[in-house]
Design a protein around this nucleic acid. Structure first.
Lengths: 311, 311
DNA sequence: CTAATGTCTTTTATCGTAAAAAAACATTTG
DNA sequence: CAAATGTTTTTTTACGATAAAAGACATTAG
């Protein structure tokens, strides 16, 4: 089978969306830039679109003939890259019950279970190892270190160090830096989300990531910027699979972000540090609560609290 | 060719050394533990030793017949793992002239040049990417970010953050913690090295790494501990290929380490911070000086200084 | 004569496969 | 019967091969 053409399929689907908006597609290089693929792939897409009667393609002329229908699209599961598939599959196991620290990870078994080659699994594990959740024994198997309480604490510690530093650097940025416009835009989005939090709270996850990445970018330090990948990964799966109390958590976080944004705009370092600390402290608690040990504690806290409290 | 048996060859060589010390080799599992390999490999080693008349092997009895000779050993170049070979080869190119930022890295070309399969090169690059010196373009080539001035600064910044924290944690460790004994041992080694610095200065590199790793271990944070890999890697190659001024640099560093150790033993946080800062500042300068841009500056400084100063 | 298209080449992503090494299981020995 | 040896199975490590995708070069259209 050698290699799936998911890049082509995914770009094809995205190109279908473009079809809805114009009557004439742009040049091949331009399309390639828009879709983030090479001209080779663009031409593949155009050929198929012509074949399926979506466009009339003759050299520079790519006239749209009809709007795309539901079954012009490739099914979603065919557009994922192998590494995404492996990651999802692996994370599902990792965050599921019974994934205890010390357990050994078998490349061959993983590969068979997911239905991919061992090479891809190996490469995934190597890439994934930088998140600190697994570890390799020389000439031997991988060991699961697990999404434990210790992991959450260690992660939160570094995050706080890095973000306090980034936030201070951010506040010290000159007025004409483009980050202030980015921050304004994020603030607007936060306010919009806050107004309709009851319905839109699931959108917070994505906004959260953009907000923190903007702050970290002010550090101008690749190690700090890259470290956010660890946090983003954890939060991504956490948000996906642990919905308990999500709404109230997000509501709190939005409010904290707004206070944090206000502090940044004030350029007052003491205020920035206070707002940043406050937000990171509750983020830390959220993280700790989402570990297996943490979840037990949350349950215990609930049991103690008089009934009627459904937050 | 599929896979080299360097694990076997390396363990065989190490086992030959063992032969010089005893008249009877221990049990297979015990040997495996000593050499860090599986019983399968141990038996392979024993079989060859028996065949070459080094030992008489009959079940539990492994009597040494003769001392190993020079040509009983496998040549050194056959005992390196593939990833070591690739890493060395890659670092040579990276630290050599003409490795400019932005340059693209070709997996196939690298593989051909080193004489290994593409998979191994790919896996190396993925592993290596966490050092922040290269970056991958999605579905495309790797880009060299280069060992630049910016890299040195970013690395030094994080290092200082992490080490100040670790050093503070170290000093706060209870008196009965085993780290104090480790520190005493390191102090002794430092003093011994200091006494004969003129001859033994090249040994500092290894001592340096053990010292800093010990301090970082006190942080009890996997991200901090793992980060030292980046520094160790850079220093390893730096020490190997940039010998200019090495002796005086190491002499200074040994003295700074001794002051740092004394500060740690005093448990006085202010002293610890001062000693740590001092050492890290000169380490930062060393690092900066070893970048291509830095080397030019060093040359310029030398040109300004009146002749006769060969430090 | 620039920017697009058409064509050809190179590189990346992924698999199957085979040897090396580890690990599991069975058997023997002190 | 615990710990060693002997034997078999499984897993890791690495390569070469192949389709997808990118990239380079040649040609044509505006």
């Amino acid at each position: 089978m050698s290699k799936s053409n998911n890049v082509y399929k995914d770009a094809y689907n995205r190109c279908l969306r473009l079809l809805e908006e114009t009557s004439n597609l742009p040049s091949e290089p331009e399309l390639g830039a828009m879709l983030g693929v090479s001209r080779t792939t663009v031409r593949g897409i155009l050929a198929r679109m012509a074949e399926n009667g979506l466009i009339a393609w003759d050299k520079r002329d790519k006239t749209v003939l009809r709007a795309p229908k539901e079954d012009d699209f490739f099914p979603d599961e065919e557009t994922d890259s192998l590494s995404q598939i492996i990651e999802r599959s692996f994370m599902r196991r990792l965050l599921a019950e019974g994934a205890e620290a010390g357990m050994q990870i078998n490349e061959l078994e993983l590969a068979r279970e997911i239905g991919v080659g061992t090479t891809s699994v190996r490469e995934f594990l190597i890439r994934f190892s930088r998140f600190g959740l697994i570890e390799k024994r020389r000439n031997s198997h991988w060991v699961l270190k697990g999404f434990t309480h210790a992991f959450a604490l260690e992660l939160a510690d570094i995050r706080e160090m890095f973000e306090l530093r980034s936030a201070a650097a951010f506040a010290a940025l000159p007025d004409d830096s483009p980050v202030w416009a980015d921050l304004d835009r994020l603030e607007t989005e936060h306010r919009a989300l806050a107004r309709d939090i009851a319905n839109r709270y699931p959108e917070f996850s994505e906004l959260d990531e953009r907000f923190h990445r903007l702050i970290h970018s002010a550090s101008r330090n690749r190690f700090i910027v890259d470290f956010y990948d660890v946090i983003a990964m954890i939060f991504h799966y956490h948000y996906q699979w642990n919905k308990a109390g999500q709404r109230s958590r997000n509501e709190t976080a939005v409010a904290e972000h707004l206070a944090y944004i206000a502090a940044l705009k004030s350029r007052d370092l003491a205020k920035v540090e206070a707002a940043c600390r406050k937000h990171l402290t509750s983020a830390r608690q959220t993280l700790i609560d989402s570990t297996p040990e943490g979840r037990l504690n949350v349950q215990a806290r609930r049991a103690e609290t008089p009934a009627g409290n459904t937050a």
